[in-house]
Design a binder for these strands. Structure first.
Lengths: 158, 158
DNA sequence: CCACATTCGTTCACCTTTCAACTTCTTAGG
DNA sequence: CCTAAGAAGTTGAAAGGTGAACGAATGTGG
């Protein structure tokens, strides 16, 4: 059925790599999400907690957080509202720019983070990191890095 | 801030590989989705078209399609309704099992597929395949395969 | 200074996904 | 047979995501 007419098509090798990549992504998201569920968090929640916990003063501007987590401002706004209702974060006004807001990690958010992180990391190990050798993990990173870089530079173009 | 207490944590190498993987996924989905947009298709649409176009008689049972695309039956049902309204597929009764339905690729769906596929493939090349050497692509597949296998086997457990 | 464009974050309307309930049909056990 | 268990798909309500429009604040060039 497949013909080797020209550039546009993928070789079997390429197609296999590509489909595997797609599949791993989807299944991995599914699994990590599931492992986080008992703690009442989504990956999205978790990622925001990570970002805040690593940020200076445990706070970040909305825009920066949106950029860091690659979401639209709108989506982040909803997300933060939910997390605020859950008590994980709180909004705080920014004095230097009165349009701006900080999202601040609450004590409860921090505590949650500390409690959940080990489980999440274990999950990442179980379903990803520990399934490949350190060399393979190195190759993986090496292969993906230029792609990441390319995609970052593509962000928000035509 | 990081301490090297025990197993649970990730080394810098591991963390870097992991975060890169996450980032590539997200940006790649974003980019491919965007490249498909001018044709009025989502990745989800496209994947269903691919599955159907590769299937015997250009048709698949709902359940099989749901399994193949890793979505819930409910989600697929809504999805197919939308695609049916767009004229890309049609539902057809299954004679051997009167509970069952086939999703069938329409002529218009096939035509759309033929028109769009080259662009999508080009997009995959531009943002993924062509950014790494064949060797690296090989390593990538090799690293991801065991993970895919593991995740497949984990599907729908506790 | 003062318009004007821009940035920040929210909101609204609309679309997609999820989850549980439900109908219909099939299959297996007694 | 007949009933109970289960599978195939759909449905509807609630939750989550998207994109455009908006108000408020800031920055900028004349």
């Amino acid at each position: 059925m497949e013909t080797e007419t020209a550039m546009p098509w993928l070789t079997d090798e390429e197609q296999c790599a590509w489909r595997t990549h797609l599949e791993v992504n989807r299944l991995l998201n599914y699994q990590l999400e599931k492992d986080l569920q008992p703690f009442g968090l989504t990956m999205n929640d978790y990622e925001i907690l990570v970002n805040l916990s690593e940020a200076e003063d445990l706070r970040m501007r909305m825009s920066d957080l949106a950029a860091a987590t690659l979401q639209s401002k709108s989506r982040l706004s909803h997300q933060i509202t939910r997390m605020e209702n859950a008590g994980l974060v709180r909004r705080e006004n920014c004095e230097s720019d009165r349009r701006g807001l900080y999202t601040v990690l609450t004590d409860y958010g921090m505590e949650t983070m500390r409690k959940v992180a080990p489980h999440h990391v274990a999950s990442v190990r179980r379903h990803f990191v520990d399934l490949v050798s350190p060399q393979e993990l190195g190759s993986l990173r090496q292969a993906l890095s230029p792609i990441a870089e390319h995609l970052r530079s593509q962000r928000g173009k035509p």
